[in-house]
């Protein structure tokens, strides 16, 4: 049981990092970023490249991943989404565009980084055994950094001017405009931060998991589950959704046959959304 709690907590924190970027972009832009998983993969590959090919330290790789993904997010928003959102009459257009960017990123990653799975050595090695629970040092390290990143992000959103502007846009785009918020600038910033957070997740997790060019879609699906569970567009909801999924997985794999673990998770999700379509922390009015 203790090990299940440890596994669930670590899994939940990892998932929270993945879900945050997705929910932020959804909140600011109203776009379901289908390329989210591919951005995560790109973040992992950049860190891999910096650490193993350039021989630089992990933290250099981490910064490189965040910066590059931030720029990719900025590029996507400026070159694709802003343009389409202005001109398209139907909301599905942005969805199709998001699917297209996912395919684009996946192909580029496959061409540049090839087909092999990549990972880097754990930043901190060793395993702690506490009261019969196994806690690998690498996971504890990722947990710690992810926690710091999470807190920093929440503080940024709550107590800085750009953070307040982003929250205002998330609540009501039109009213924010009337209040003098520069929508274009803050949409771009929001997309860049969302993508940068995803890069951070990919960078951190490549040290305890691995990345390969084709895993983006499954990451996106899990991120969608977390976001829908917690309430689309709500930061605290994404974190809650991530921990619910993390603990469900950990407990499911521990106590029920693996073949039905995810089946039960999806059944529970369907039932839950039927009863509470706006998720754990979402508001019924959107």
């Amino acid at each position: 049981m203790e090990q299940v709690i440890v596994n669930g907590a670590i899994l939940g924190m990892n998932y929270a990092l993945i879900a945050l970027g997705l929910t932020l972009i959804f909140a600011i832009m109203g776009v379901l970023n289908f390329a989210h998983g591919q951005m995560y993969v790109l973040g992992g590959f950049i860190t891999y490249y910096v650490v193993t090919q350039l021989g630089l330290g992990f933290f250099v790789g981490l910064i490189a991943s965040v910066v590059v993904l931030g720029l990719v997010g900025l590029l996507f928003e400026r070159a694709f989404f802003r343009r389409v959102m202005r001109t398209a009459a139907r909301e599905e257009s942005t969805m199709l565009l998001a699917v297209g960017t996912a395919q684009l990123l996946e192909s580029v990653i496959l061409i540049v980084f090839r087909e092999k799975q990549r990972s880097i050595p754990a930043v901190v090695s060793g395993v702690y055994e506490v009261f019969g629970m196994y806690i690998p040092a690498g996971r504890a390290f990722v947990f710690g950094v992810a926690f710091v990143a999470l807190v920093t992000f929440i503080l940024f959103m709550q107590h800085t001017r750009p953070g307040r502007a982003l929250r205002a846009i998330a609540q009501d785009r039109e009213v924010s405009t009337l209040q003098g918020v520069n929508i274009d600038r803050y949409s771009a910033l929001g997309f860049a931060i969302g993508a940068g957070l995803t890069g951070l997740a990919g960078s951190l997790l490549v040290s305890i998991f691995a990345v390969n060019s084709g895993m983006g879609t499954s990451i996106s699906i899990k991120a969608f589950v977390m976001v829908m569970l917690g309430g689309a567009g709500v930061v605290s909801g994404a974190i809650a959704g991530a921990f619910v999924l993390g603990f469900s997985e950990a407990a499911g794999y521990a106590y029920i046959p693996g073949q039905v673990t995810y089946l039960l998770i999806f059944i529970a999700l369907i039932v839950f959304l039927a009863l509470r379509p706006h998720g754990i922390m979402g508001k019924p009015w959107g």
């Binding site: 997790l205 998991f209 997985e249 794999y253 521990a254």
Partner: peptide, 18 residues
């Protein structure tokens, strides 16, 4: 022999633990 993992799993800690 009844434990399995889903395609796309990244964290194998829970399933391997069992």
């Amino acid at each position: 022999s009844d434990s399995t993992y889903e395609p796309g799993t990244t964290d194998f800690f829970p399933v391997v633990g069992r």
